[in-house]
C-alpha cells in the first residue's frame, strides 16, 4: 500500500523484484545502487548467505524527487529466488505497490521462470492482490548469453497482460533503469486513480 504522509509531504512506494533463483534480481538493485547519486539513495541492505545468495531480502531506498510538491520515495526489495524460501517471499510481498518480474533468458531456466511466475501469482493472491491489476513489468535478463531464448518466445510464455517488457543485461546495466522507470510510472499512475 502506498504510504502517503501528508504532514511530511512524502509518498512512499514499495516495488518488489521477483523471479527464479540466480536470475539477477540483486544484480538489478546493485546496478541501480551503483549508478544513483549518493543524495538520492540510502544504504543497500543485503540479507544474504555467505555465498551471496539472497536469504531474506535486499532493500534499497531511492528518492526520485518531487511530484506535485510531494517527495517520492521508492523502496526496492528483492525476494530470495530459491524455491524453498517461499515463506520469506510471501512476507516481502506484503504491502507491495508494483512488481518487476526478472526472467532468466537461458533456455535451461525457462521452466524455472514459469514456476516462479506461477508462485508470484499465487503469493500475490494470498496477500489479496491480483497480478492482472497490480502494476507489473517483465524484464528478460541475460540477453547477452549465447543460450538465450528468443525474446518473442519468452514473451509468449511469460506475458500476463501485455505488460511493459524489457530486454536486459543487468551485469552491465542494459535495461535496468528502463525497467525501474516503467514500474515506477505504473505505480504513480495507479495513485491517480485512487
Amino acid at each position: 500500500m502506498t504510504f502517503i504522509n501528508y504532514a511530511a509531504r512524502e509518498i512512499n512506494c514499495k516495488i518488489v523484484y521477483y523471479g527464479p533463483g540466480l536470475c539477477g534480481k540483486t544484480t538489478n538493485l546493485q546496478w541501480i545502487y551503483d549508478k544513483t547519486n549518493p543524495q538520492a539513495k540510502g544504504k543497500l541492505i543485503s540479507l544474504a548467505t555467505e555465498t551471496d545468495r539472497t536469504l531474506f531480502f535486499d532493500f534499497l531506498p531511492l528518492d526520485l524527487g518531487q511530484v506535485r510538491g510531494f517527495k517520492t520515495r521508492f523502496h526496492l526489495y528483492t525476494v530470495p529466488g530459491q524455491v524453498f524460501y517461499d515463506a520469506s517471499r510471501k512476507l516481502i510481498l506484503k504491502g507491495v505497490d508494483g512488481v518487476c518480474f526478472i526472467a532468466d533468458s537461458q533456455d535451461a531456466r525457462m521452466e524455472a521462470n514459469a514456476e516462479s511466475l506461477q508462485n508470484l501469482e499465487k503469493n500475490l493472491k494470498e496477500q489479496g492482490y491480483d497480478l492482472r491489476t497490480i502494476p507489473y513489468v517483465l524484464q528478460m535478463n541475460k540477453r547477452d548469453l549465447p543460450t538465450a531464448v528468443a525474446p518473442e518466445e519468452i514473451y509468449r510464455q511469460l506475458n500476463v497482460k501485455g505488460e511493459p517488457t524489457f530486454e536486459a543485461v543487468a551485469m552491465n546495466g542494459t535495461g535496468v533503469f528502463d525497467t525501474l522507470k516503467a514500474v515506477a510510472k505504473l505505480v504513480l499512475t495507479e495513485l491517480k486513480k485512487k
Binding site: 540510502g42 531480502f57 516481502i92
Partner: peptide, 29 residues
Amino acid sequence: NGQQIASHGDMRDVDATSLASLTAGNVAA
C-alpha cells in the same frame, strides 16, 4: 510494511530507513 512513520531521539548515527525496513522484516519473519 517498513515505512517509517515518526521517530524521536538522537537519530544522527542511525540509518532510519534501514532500521524501518529491517524491523518490519524482523517482525514479519
